[in-house]
Structures are given as C-alpha cells and as structure tokens.
Nucleic acid binder design. Structure first.
Lengths: 154, 154
DNA sequence: TATTGTTATACTCTATAACTATA
DNA sequence: TATAGTTATAGAGTATAACAATA
C-alpha cells in the first residue's frame, strides 16, 4: 500500500523533472542526449567517441550523430587524437563549457530549493529511504537481467 | 548540499526505473508511449483519440500512429463511436487487457518490494518528504512556465 | 586481426500543416 | 464554421550491418 505510494510519487516526480528539464533544454536549443554527452565532457574532460558511447550507454554510431550535431551548433568539436590516428578527441568549445557551467549552477540551486522548508530530520530520513530504494532497485534490476539471460538461452 | 543529494538520488532512481521499464516493455514487444496509451484505456475505459491526445499530452496526429501500431499488434482496436460518426472509440482487445492486468500486478509488487526492509517511520518520513518535493517541483515548474511566457511576449 | 569512426538503412517518437468527412 | 481523424512531411533518437583507415 505505502510501497505503491512511494513508487507512484517517485514516478510522478520523475515525470515532472523530465518535462521541466526538456523544456529548459528546448529553450536553449539543446536536446537530452546531446546535453548528456556535454555533461560527460564537462565532468571528465575530452574523450574518444568509443569511450563516450560506453559512458552514455549508446552505440558508437549514434555518438557520431550527436557529435555532428554539437559540432554544427558550435558546442563541441573534434580534435585529432595525439597518439592514435584512427581516433578523435571530442571536447567542449568555449560556448559549450559556459553553457555547462550555467546548467551546473542551476542544478545546485534546484537541489537546494527542493528541500526548502523541510526540517533536517525529515530530510535525513528521506535520504535514508531513497538510498535504500535505490539499492533495492539495483538488486531487482540485476535479477531481471539475470532472468532475461536465462530466457535468451532457450 | 543534502538538497543536491536528494535531487541526485531522485535522478538516479528515475534513470533506473526508466531503463528497467523499457527493458521489460521491450521484452513484450511494447514501447513506452504505446503502453501509456493502453494504461489510460485500462484505467478509464474506451476513449476517442482526441481525448487520448489530451490525456497523454501529445498531438492527435501522434495518437493515430500509436493506435495504428497497437491495432497492428492486436492490443487495441478502433470501434465506431455510437453517436458521432466522425469519431472512433479506442478500446483494449482481450490480449491488451490481460497484458495490462499483468503489468498492474507487477507494479504493485514492485512498489511493495521497494520499501521492503525499511521501518515504518522512515517510510512515513520519506512519503512526507516526497510529497513535499513534488509540491515544490510543481511550484517551480509553474514559475518556469510563467517566466517562459514573459519571455515569449518580447 | 581488432578497433575507431562513418556510410547506409530503418524504426520509433513527436510535431506542424493541409485535408476529408462529419457535426 | 468547428471538430475528429488522416495524409504528407520532417527532425530527433536509436539500432544493426557493412566498410574504411589505422593499430
């Protein structure tokens, strides 16, 4: 009963966060996967496309498309890899970097404003519960993946 | 600081829930928006396409595409509207219905299993916090929308 | 021979604009 | 004239398969 309440609240919050994020990105002419790619560059520095594909959980082919789009809009660029002539290093441009800095600040601000008005104990309990839920979910997902592999073997 | 923790936990949980959901749907040959449409039919009964478009927050044109796909896979069907010959009523087939029943049960089970192992007080505090966060988010989104409208007026 | 990235192709998500049939 | 749904078109997300250049 209350478990369903927790799940439904989480799903509702997800939907709102996602919709708000998409609207904010749209306003800047960005899209979710492109921003995600820039986010990785922002936090981990220049990367090869294969590495980006792993980080983002998408195919290398799709990274080509994303980088093409970011390049065309002047947010990222390809540079030659210093030692491997097959590979390129993708990096943020000045404009891409300053955009990520702005978004990073907004992220912090949003986080603070979410718990604004809640007492410390409730926040602490919520953090405990969220961490627990996250752990449970990771276990469940692992089980699902296991079940799927078994299925695929037949 | 802890606000960012809450936000990051929520985002991480969203990502996991979404990825897991997509994998489960994929396994059944479904997609997220098609399932969402079936979910509405399951909970609210047969609907016109215009009404479905409103419920799902998409264009009527896209509902046509979704219903076409569900029809082609035998999960939903179009029926003539009893009084308005322009309109159709979309309804679940037997197979669509039983699929929704299965998913509904799994949803309940997932909810229960998420809080499995947490004491009642923590769960209560988490629910309080989540409801608060949701309210804050709704306020923020409304503010964003307001700001956007102002921008558009110039 | 294995790996990096790209060309070719295809399906799904989603929108806008124009149109048909009916209200 | 307004509304319900569809044809036409298009951009974005995403995948697989085949291929080129380089390791």
């Amino acid at each position: 009963m209350s478990g369903t309440h927790v799940l439904d609240s989480l799903l509702a919050i997800s939907r709102i966060l996602e919709a708000d994020q998409e609207r904010e990105l749209d306003r800047r002419g960005l899209t979710v996967p492109r921003t995600h790619l820039m986010w990785v560059l922002f936090h981990e520095g220049p990367q090869t496309q294969v590495h980006l594909a792993e980080q983002l959980g998408v195919t290398p082919r799709y990274v080509t498309t994303l980088v093409d789009a970011l390049d065309a809009t002047g947010l990222a660029r390809r540079e030659p890899h210093p030692t491997d002539r097959r590979a390129v290093l993708v990096d943020l441009t000045e404009r891409g970097l300053s955009m990520m800095e702005t978004m990073d600040a907004e992220h912090e601000q949003l986080g603070a404003s979410l718990i604004d008005g809640l007492d410390g104990e409730t926040v602490a309990a919520a953090i405990r519960a969220l961490d627990h839920v996250r752990g449970r979910l990771e276990t469940l997902v692992a089980e699902h993946e296991h079940a799927q592999k078994e299925r695929e073997e037949w």
